[in-house]
Amino acid sequence: MTPAIRVEHLTRRFGAFTAVRDVSFHVEKGEIFGYLGANGAGKSTTIRMLCGLLAPSEGDAVVAGHRVSREPEAIKWRIGYMSQKFSLYRDLGARENLEFYGGAYGLGGRRLRRRIAEVVELTDLAEVRDVPTGELPGGIRQRVALANAILHEPEIVFLDEPTAGVDPVSRRAFWRLIRHMAEAGTTVFVTTHYMDEAEYCARIGLMVAGRLAALDTPAALKRRHAPGTTWHVEAPAILRHLAALRRLPGVVEATAFGRGAHVRVAEGAPTGEAELRAALAAAGVPPTLVEPVAPTLEDVFLAVASADEQAAGTAAAWEDPA
């Protein structure tokens, strides 16, 4: 089966700044592909290139069977795009926005009305469809944008930070919709910086400073980049004592996590619960909690990002270039 998206050595420069550097991967049809990274890591730039909105400086990508370098217009018929910033018309209601964008995709008449009714139902917008979108709260607004992106039944949907700044309940509802779409056969390419959301993705690409630093399923990423045992440790003012933990033999990483810290210990190292407790007690802060936990994608991300920074010797650019 040919992949929905095939990216080959994609590079984009803005002047002297390289936003995306030699990125290659592919996305299978019907897959939820997560694209993770800090702000400015090149996520939006990649999406814009894949949507035909931005020409690649080097490399190319095949999206829905068309090359972005040569046939960006052909791609636009077959994809849906939800930009990071809400970019529908704020003075128009959801229904008017949908009518307009439906028309922009050449939909009209009964077919357009039927599709609008379907997406309004799917995204639960019936009650607010005539309120100007500028007056809607963020969570609902994102649903309007999603309804708009899937109105013309695209094969691939690109969602750029669809849940940024949205409350947890709305985020969960939003991800139910994404999974629903994928089950119906739509390929979903989604960027996020919420690591818990990334767990929903079939595969994840990790972007660090414009480069694709890791790519795999969440489970495989954890096995490879967060091997050993991860301990969740809670103690008073633990952030000031991370250095003491790092000095223990076999400790690969000790980073803040929630109210405590995650300490990752290499396979077979002589550091366990007793040693962690002793080290903190010696530092004057006996821990209130030490327990083994499954590593999260955040652990993976921190491991990959710090390894990459050491390798590249550069810090990530934190500003979004666009």
Binding site: S83, K85, Y89
Partner: peptide
């Protein structure tokens, strides 16, 4: 200025 041009460009409108 609205940012809606980006969304418009993502459609096949010429």
């Amino acid at each position: 200025e609205w940012g809606s041009m980006e969304q418009l460009f993502a459609t096949p409108v010429g």
